[in-house]
Each structure stands twice: as structure tokens, then as C-alpha cells.
Design a binder for these strands. Structure first.
Lengths: 153, 153
DNA sequence: CCGTATCCATTCCGATACTG
DNA sequence: CAGTATCGGAATGGATACGG
């Protein structure tokens, strides 16, 4: 008993997403990857995570298709972990999470780290995110239920 | 040993945010709250979560200031759990997570649940998110480090 | 119907030692 | 440097029984 219930088959996209990245380390690894971190040791030092756990989390993220393993860019015989397109698509998630954290989790005047968007040169905290409005035409029968109770403010 | 490292004091807003909602159930509870769920039993049924865990997670979210406890709206002597402004500010996080899940975690033709934004009448999956561009003027000395390595695509 | 309390299996995670 | 192997303690989560 006490077998953990899998969310991987949930009809809710939020639940499925959490099955992959709803875990203490996963998103921090992804955040570091966005930050340019590629090597095992860099992740380990940056996150201060035990090596065995890091090994396991990297493996899970690779299996999930969020990271990819490539031969090291320098001569060394090792590997590097880079974001796949699927992993890069997590950028808006990181940004919104960061924005929420900055706005709600820091005392006035308290310092926080910052991330600059390479393309725009602006802090990611100030990015306006564009969703894929045109993508997924959503043909009839796509949804298993429709709930019209959302507030947006 | 093996004491879990707290992220609550991390200078990274993403890490702090994950300390609160980076857990298997927290965001699903928040998602349900956005969906209009307010009662203990509703959460329990919707999430199929053990009652003791639900109790604990609700308590944590209340402590974190994401949910608030109010007297039941019907006559019953119980309580209801409603989103605080801080909790409602998580809306963009849920939306981006959902968008990512829809785009990357479902096979073509596979159905997923849907959520309609009350204000706009559109699916949240197609919302264009506006960040608080004007807020937090970010005076000098706000950041502990600046990293300019971000890719945005 | 709303929770709390207990018990226990599973999972997580840190420390450490070890290999190449 | 980049992992793997093993260990033990802590946290998570599920089942269930109980009380308001």
C-alpha cells in the first residue's frame, strides 16, 4: 500500500506536467539549464544536491524528454545536459514562477537573484509572455470536460 | 542527517516559490481552487487524496498565505478555503504549466480537460499573459547577481 | 460531512565510499 | 571530474479508524 498515485494519465494537463516537473529538484535543474549550466559538476555545485540524487533527476528529465545528453563540448570524455525544445518550452513556467516569487516571497528591500533574457536584454521578471494563441486549433471533441468557472483578475 | 534543505531563504525567487508550491499536491489544490472548489470534501473527491494529507496541505497553504479560511457560505458550521490575492497571483503559473502540458504531454487526438477564463470567455490555454511590467521598479542593489545567459526563443 | 490521529509502506535525500 | 553503490534517516502519502 501507500503506492504513490501516478498523475501521468490524468486528463488534466497541469497534473501531467506536475508528474514530470512537480518535484523539489526538477525545475531547479531546468532553471540552471536555462542559466547555461551543462555539466554534472556545475549542477551539483550550483544546487548543492547530493550526487546520487542529481544522477537520478537528470536521468528522469532525460527520459521525460526535457533534457538531452550530448558529448561534452570541450575535449573531455564526458557528457553535457542540454534542454530539448520541450525543455525550452518550460521557459514561461520558470518566468511566471519567478515573477510570483519576486512579488510575493521577498520582503521589501530584500535582494534576490536576477536573470536577463538573452534575446531582449531585459530581466525575465518583466517579460510579457505570449502564449501560442494560434497553435492547437482544438477540434471538437478535444476536451473531456469544460469548466467555466475561472476568474482572471 | 538527510535533513531536507530548506529553499525558503534562497536568493532565487524560483527556489523560494518551489518551497511553497513545488510539491505534488499544492498546485493541484490551487488549480482546484481556481476551478471554484472551496470545501474540504470537494477537494478530497476531486483530487482523490487521502484526508490526512489534504488536511496537512491545506494547512501549509494557509500558513503560506496562499489560501484563506473563511466560514462556510452555506449555513453549515464548517469552513471554506479560498484563494488570497497572493494565491490568485499564481494564475499565470497554472496557465503556463497547463499550456506546456497541453502542448507537450498529450498525444495527438488525446483528450484533455479544459478551463475557461471567466473574464474573457476564452480557454486559459490561449491566454496571453501580461506580466507586471510596471511594478517593482527594481532600484539599484536589488539583485545579488546578474546573469546574462538567457535564451528566450 | 469535516476533519484528526495512528500506523505503516514507499520514496526522498544526504553522507560517504568507491570506480574510472 | 563524472558518475555509481550503499546506507540510514527523514519526509511523503495512503489506509483506516476515530471524534466533532
Amino acid at each position: 500500500m501507500a503506492k504513490r498515485k501516478s498523475l501521468a494519465d490524468s486528463p488534466c494537463p497541469v497534473a501531467r506536467a506536475l508528474e514530470i516537473i512537480g518535484e523539489r529538484w526538477a525545475l531547479l535543474i531546468v532553471r540552471d539549464a536555462f542559466d547555461g549550466v551543462r555539466r554534472f559538476g556545475e549542477f551539483q555545485e550550483s544546487l548543492d544536491i547530493a550526487r546520487n540524487i542529481l544522477t537520478d533527476r537528470l536521468r528522469l528529465l532525460v527520459e521525460a524528454g526535457v533534457l538531452d545528453v550530448v558529448p561534452a563540448s570541450d575535449g573531455s570524455a564526458y557528457q553535457e545536459y542540454v534542454l530539448t525544445p520541450k525543455g525550452e518550452a518550460l521557459f514561461p513556467v520558470i518566468v511566471t514562477l519567478r515573477q510570483w516569487g519576486e512579488a510575493n516571497l521577498f520582503a521589501r528591500g530584500e535582494k534576490h537573484s536576477q536573470l536577463i533574457d538573452r534575446a531582449s536584454g531585459k530581466p525575465v521578471s518583466k517579460l510579457i509572455l505570449r502564449s501560442a494563441v494560434g497553435t492547437t486549433p482544438a477540434p471538437a471533441g478535444t476536451f473531456v470536460k469544460k469548466v467555466a468557472t475561472q476568474k482572471s483578475r
